[in-house]
Amino acid sequence: MRTFRYLSGVSTLALDTARCVGCGWCEVVCPHGVLAVSDGKAGIVDRDRCMECGACAANCPAGAVRVTPGVGCAAYILQVWLKGKAKASCC
C-alpha cells in the first residue's frame, strides 16, 4: 500500500489533542496507519493517506477525532450531484 498516494491536502481529518485520552482505538481501526499513539496521546502521522472512512471518529470514546466521512467514489458523488443525497446509491 505504500506505493499508493492520492491527492494531498484534501482530508477533513482533525484531531483535538486536548480531548485525547490515549486509548489507541483510532490507531487500531485506521486502515492506512494515519493515526498513532505515542506518549499517551494520538497524533496524525500521515494526513495525506487519510481516505476519510470515518473509522477513527466512530470509535473515539472522547470525541477527539473528527472527520467528514464518505465514500471516495466518483460514480456515487456524481449521483449525489444529479439526484441528491437521498436518491444516490453506490454502484
Partner: peptide, 16 residues
C-alpha cells in the same frame, strides 16, 4: 476511484 481502498471523498470531489 470507487473500487480502490485509498481515495478520499474530498479528493475525488476535487478531482471531478
Amino acid at each position: 476511484t470507487g473500487s480502490t481502498p485509498f481515495t478520499s471523498p474530498s479528493g475525488v470531489e476535487r478531482e471531478m
